[in-house]
Amino acid sequence: MSNNWEKKWIEDIDFLKSNLINNHKNLFFTTTREEFEEKIEMLKSIINNLDYDEMKVELSRIVASIKDAHTSIEFPVNKYLPFKFYYFNDGIYITKVTKGFEKFLYRKVTKIEDIPIDEVIKELSQIISYENEYFLKAQSMKYLQGADILYGLLICDNIDKINITLEDEVVEVKTINPKDLIYLENIRIPLYAERYKDNYWHKYIKDEEILYIKYNSCKDNGDVSIKNNIVETINFIEKNNVNKITIDLRNNLGGNSTLLRPLIEYIKSNKKINQRENLKVIIGRETFSSALINAYEFKFETNAILTGEPSGGKPNCYGEILRFTLPNSKFRVSYSTKYYKIIEDDSILALYPDEFQEEKIEEYLMYL
């Protein structure tokens, strides 16, 4: 490697170090400054032994060691496996595929190259920012898609094709470019997995007389505002005399928690809906940040039953992120600027549902 390679990475590493130390609300809440700086110096000493993908991984390892789920590093992924994965109760399955890979749909993954999938997830856990096992389950499935991430972790030695074991069958899978990562949409899937690109939508389920509301992101979706969505929802409820509502927050990673307040206030004032038997809120491993605040608002302010999996977000945590960009690699780094205390007990790692209900691969297999 050239001296210029080393010089630019040292600049980035020092920039990362100084900005995190100076700007994070409390960088050393789980580690010491000495331990952090030791990791920084160790990485600087081995730069010339690493390639670009290995540098991405090692920078992520340092940031992940802070153990703040809101403090993380974003880098480009240039090669993907043509799949989307999900960690079900009995293992990891392929739940979405791109064109030409239909035969792999809903197959169980047991190895990447010759490494058992549990060991692959263990390796990924070292470079992912998380605070509980549920968020790790969610985030690891996204990292598992990145062929150059697997390459940087030395899990595979060819970024263009990777051997994957599907139960007992070993298949060679060619990786694809980001522009080709377009999942097939003409496959029937469970209701909660539909319209995943829409930040907010609702559907009336006639057989059960329930209005299902899916809240995927605490953000306006372009010109479509959450405020207008909520107005439409309330108008539908009033016009159709709806008594039962299910609000699904399981895939909501956050944004602005105040956007949902008009719906929460309406539900609080509606005596028919605000009954334990009529109001359900679904949470899960991707219920995080502002969405977790909304879930607690339902828990504390309404009579809702919380169902699903424990939240990916930790109730009391650092957040309110800002970002900076490393000068040479242009990797984006997010960091926390505020501490949120929702409950008294700091040791509680998640919001736990009243009724535990895991997602199962059978919910997908029924549509084959």
Rank of each mutant, 00 (worst) to 15 (best):
I92F: 02
L153E: 00
S2C: 05
Y87K: 11
K108Q: 13
N243L: 03
F135N: 07
Q126N: 12
N316E: 04
K239N: 14
E265M: 04
K174D: 08
I282L: 04
N4D: 07
A291S: 06
L81K: 03
L154R: 15
G100M: 05
I282K: 08
A304L: 04
E344M: 10
E209M: 08
D248L: 01
T95N: 13
K161L: 10
K142R: 14
A295P: 00
N186Q: 08
L365N: 15
S65H: 09
I115L: 11
A147C: 01
M42A: 05
S140E: 06
A69P: 01
E344H: 14
Q139D: 11
L191C: 06
N270F: 06
I73H: 00
I273W: 00
K203Q: 10
G255R: 01
H202C: 04
E167V: 15
I159S: 02
E41R: 11
T110C: 03
I94K: 03
L124V: 12
N48P: 09
E362W: 12
Y367C: 12
I46N: 07
K174L: 13
K203C: 04
N199T: 02
D90G: 06
K227I: 10
L263Y: 08
C218W: 07
Q145D: 07
Y93N: 09
H70Q: 12
I205M: 13
G255N: 01
K299D: 06
I305C: 05
N177V: 15
K239V: 07
P262G: 04
R61G: 09
M366Y: 07
S140D: 07
D223W: 09
L150F: 02
I321R: 06
K161A: 08
D118E: 13
T246S: 05
T71I: 06
L349I: 15
R33T: 15
V224I: 10
T71K: 02
D223R: 13
E35K: 14
G313M: 00
E358K: 15
T246Q: 09
R188W: 10
N78W: 10
V231N: 03
E58I: 00
N4A: 10
V120I: 15
S65N: 11
S334H: 04
N294I: 01
S347E: 15
N235L: 11
M42K: 09
F135G: 06
K268C: 03
Q357D: 12
L16T: 01
E113A: 10
I361L: 02
L368G: 11
S334M: 06
F288N: 00
D207R: 11
K137W: 08
Y340P: 15
I226C: 03
K268A: 01
I187W: 03
Y134H: 12
D114Y: 13
R250Y: 10
K99F: 10
M1I: 10
I159Q: 01
N240D: 05
N235G: 05
H202V: 03
R195Y: 11
E277L: 10
F331W: 06
E309L: 14
T246F: 00
S60Y: 10
K79T: 04
E172S: 11
D68S: 00
N221L: 04
I361N: 00
A147T: 01
Y215S: 07
S290E: 00
A138D: 15
K271M: 11
E320L: 12
Y296G: 01
K271I: 14
E123Y: 09
L27I: 05
I321M: 05
L260Y: 02
R250G: 06
Y87I: 15
K39R: 15
L20Q: 06
L16K: 02
K206G: 11
Y130W: 13
I176P: 01
